[in-house]
Design a protein around this nucleic acid. Structure first.
Lengths: 201, 201, 201, 201
DNA sequence: TATGAATGAGGATTCATTCAT
DNA sequence: TATGAATGAATCCTCATTCAT
């Protein structure tokens, strides 16, 4: 659809706010339209249906994730460092946008199976990025040659996801980014790697 | 409610099947009643409302989890073995009951926030069990004294949950239990432990 | 039905209490049974259905009304006196039984048209009693020969009913019987009669 | 709500017809919508809920009562005349709209206590109007200075209400307005007034 | 493009009544 | 007589989507 028109992004941003503040099941199209400052019918000039808003929302935000993380790991040499900046940025992006954190960790998961499958398709881009990091670790010898990349990636993503969800469920009361070094160490060890961050031993 | 009456369990089992086969939002009370072989009104002799069915379902099934795993880890000495049987049983219980796996990993997460909070309360019993295993590892010296138990537990649960969800989303096409040794190794390493399973190196 | 059995009256009295305390639409058969100290099914050994309880209740209580008032007017000579003791007793019976007042003035009127028509049949006995008083006044010359007995009776019953309903709606906060002399004067005047009560002028 | 929109009145009129013809408990929202020629959901653009339809219905119709009667008594000098035109119009409005008569005298009284209390609030406007007439009679000397206005009003309203209800229960088989002069005389006498209508003696 | 009034399908829950014991 | 577990019909309201303007 017309993704470059200002109203496209306007509606997506409105959706994030409305879903975060009202919850998934109370985020009616009319509320999103009101928040975006447009009429209900206008929504349907930019999105096929409500489901399309949610998928598009996830796509837009997830691409920010992937772009940002691709950018920061490009400058890193060791897999330990790559993993660290990935974890850092994962936590930072969600830490900086409380609404987005609520929407991705809690609310969007209440959508039905069909939507969740489509969201998972979008997520695959991020999962591939993690795979890339892991493969680079195997190739450089930092990780064992027989590391099960698929399972290791499930461990990394599952751990990060659980960590962020717990933080959101605890109403974001503590500093998520403070946990980054510890979780980095756990995951790196899990993959059989050694810490090569400047301060590490 | 009347938890010992056969109809109580009969209705819960019917709910698992109906939700797994129709999806959360298509699991009408009348469908559950029909599957259970009782009248719609009979449901309300055993449950306060539909929400109560879902919470009770989760409680009943989760207590199977906790009871079973408490039982099997009791006979194990090393934390490596405890972790292994926990992972084994986590995967086995869900592997053996495809309907239950769909319900816990996909469908029940579509419930509204209120229900999810109550489900999370129930889940805490399982999380505490994981903590207990981790603490025993710290105390025995198998894990480092400064292991962050909270984060390690988030890693373990997040990893298992992601692994099972991925398997369910792939329509349970491969053997989940085959992944147990590999994931055990990853998680054990993550926590800084050494494999003390007989066959391990 | 078995009107002499103790449980018959037991159930009717329970119904009065339950309806008065819970309101017509919250007076379920199961509540009445519980209040009466019998099982739900037992109700149906004494009454055909719920409607039958309500009609029977009204019949029983209304016959108290008619019997009592027939008794007291028998000893009175003038129509003024007859009217007075009728009004006195009408107010007294309802004043003495707060539950009954709530049930007859407010709750029973919420029943459907069918039940209300049957209740009206029962009420006719009372209306005929008023007619008898009025006719005696016409025959004795105390009232004009061309008094419209039917309309005069509607005035008397309508006035008493409105007076008692207003009192019940005001939560029975004032003394209903204190209004008896005044309302007696208004109604007697309305019918064209003169006050022949000892204290009257 | 949007009281000036034609659909507002359209729905209220439909409700009167549906309730009169089907009875209070058989007046489903879908029936009212069908009668009004709108979709079920449209009802909720104009009314908060079903209860709101009933209260609004009563408000609209009762204001016709009050407005009309205020208008006609304004041109009358004596309290006897004022009372007469009030009774005339009370009977005429209900006589002219058989559906409305059924709804106000029989069906709306089946509503639950909450709705009835709100209806009673609306009714107070009419009762105050009767009080105004009575007070004007006291002030002009047509009624005794010690007339109990409150009880006299209860007599007047109770009598009219009983008269109309009896007429409705008898399926409106006779001419209600033919009773106006007689009931006027009874009530006027009751209040201690003299007939000053041109034809009266 | 933009509007917003109108649409209409769909489901949890209550409670009078029955009947096997 | 007495019980009480089981039955099952019946309805208000929400909200994604459309379409005439």
């Amino acid at each position: 659809m017309k993704r470059n028109k200002p109203k496209y992004k306007q509606i997506i941003d409105a959706a994030v706010i409305v879903i975060a503040e009202n919850g998934y099941h109370q985020a009616q199209v009319s509320k999103i339209a009101k928040q975006a400052g447009v009429a209900d019918g206008t929504i349907y000039l930019y999105f096929k249906n409500k489901e399309d808003i949610l998928i598009s929302l996830f796509k837009e935000k997830m691409s920010l994730f992937v772009d940002k993380i691709e950018e920061v790991i490009a400058g890193k040499q060791t897999v330990s460092e790559k993993l660290l900046v990935m974890i850092e940025n994962h936590c930072k992006i969600l830490s900086d946008d409380h609404h987005l954190a609520i929407v991705t960790q809690l609310e969007l998961r209440q959508s039905n199976k069909e939507i969740r499958l489509k969201i998972n398709d979008v997520l695959k881009g991020y999962l591939k990025l993690i795979d890339t990091i892991l493969v680079s670790g195997v190739e450089s010898g930092e990780f064992s040659a027989n590391l099960d990349v698929r399972l290791a990636r499930q461990m990394i993503f599952g751990t990060l996801d659980e960590m962020v969800t717990t933080w959101v469920m605890n109403e974001q009361k503590y500093d998520l980014t403070a946990q980054v070094p510890t979780i980095h160490k756990l995951l790196l060890q899990g993959c059989g790697g050694r810490n090569t961050i400047s301060l590490g031993g």
